[in-house]
């Protein structure tokens, strides 16, 4: 796995955030802070980019979220001097599932993620603040996210950093040890961990992804290089392929000469 130069990454990503906020005409940035590593890193980058007064953090716990998550999030906001609001999403989630039971359990996770997205975009307008995403490269590549939920944001500053690289960046940014030390988790129910759900450690997953994606090795070459069971590499590759729809815009059926998404082509940050 590639080591990163955290000072350069910080210099680039803070400018990237400031540039996006300025270009889109927003007053600042807003993001959901879970108490986990990814949102902590993005919050710290945004606070550096815009100044603490330019950033709003929303803590959006559900009643089954671990109590320490919100505490870690609050402590971080306090440390960074960022304005922080807590909105318990339990009433609206529970009201919905009282009518349509959450079976399988994944439905609860998806609903929570989309509810948080909905609240973030609502407050984005209220505060004229750009929604900053917290997805990392590992989860983007294997599709470990909820479509139109946690994957929905205006920009993804750490979307080209693997989870293990986000750890390095977190150390550089001075993220509190209580956040760095805990097991990565979507925190949807007690005891849930990313690595438990994915069935692989981030260290191993990131190494496989780095060789397949960044170094463009074939699965057979990755198996030989890393001395791993072929089926483990195949499973990762299958997750990448099957989640491609989460990384693209919905296709528009072409009928005319010039079709949105196909041959009507402009960058979104067109400055006019």
């Amino acid at each position: 796995m590639n080591e990163i130069d955290s000072a350069t990454v910080t210099a680039v990503l803070t400018r990237f955030i400031a540039d996006a906020v300025a270009k889109t005409g927003h007053r600042g940035a807003i993001l959901g802070v879970s108490g986990g590593l990814d949102s902590a890193v993005v919050l710290a980058l945004a606070a550096r980019a815009l100044g603490p007064a330019g950033v709003t953090a929303l803590l959006l716990p559900y009643r089954m979220s671990a109590p320490e998550s919100a505490r870690h999030g609050r402590n971080l906001c306090q440390q960074l001097g960022v304005e922080c609001h807590e909105i318990d999403i339990s009433p609206q989630i529970d009201a919905y599932f009282a009518r349509f039971p959450a079976e399988p359990r994944m439905l609860l996770g998806n609903k929570c993620a989309r509810e948080r997205m909905s609240i973030l975009y609502d407050h984005s307008v209220r505060r004229q603040a750009l929604v900053i995403g917290t997805s990392n490269k590992s989860e983007l590549l294997v599709g470990y996210s909820t479509l139109f939920g946690d994957s929905a944001a205006a920009i993804q500053p750490i979307g080209d950093l693997y989870k293990t690289q986000v750890f390095s960046l977190a150390l550089h940014l001075g993220i509190p040890a209580e956040i760095i030390a805990k097991q990565p988790s979507a925190d949807l129910w007690p005891g849930q961990t990313d690595e438990g759900e994915l069935g692989i450690t981030y260290r191993e997953l990131d190494e496989i992804l780095f060789q397949l994606v960044d170094r463009r090795l074939s699965p057979a070459q990755v198996v030989a290089l890393l001395d791993l069971p072929a089926e483990r590499v195949a499973r990762v590759r299958q997750r990448i392929v099957r989640s491609q729809y989460k990384r693209t815009m919905p296709p528009v059926a072409k009928l005319s000469n010039r079709t949105v998404g196909l041959d009507f082509r402009y960058l979104r940050d067109l400055a006019r």
């Binding site: 590639n2 080591e3 990163i4 130069d5 990454v9 080209d160």
Partner: peptide, 10 residues
């Protein structure tokens, strides 16, 4: 554009 991030920058 910068690319090829590593321990010594791009």
């Amino acid at each position: 554009p910068h690319r090829g991030l590593g321990p010594e920058g791009f």
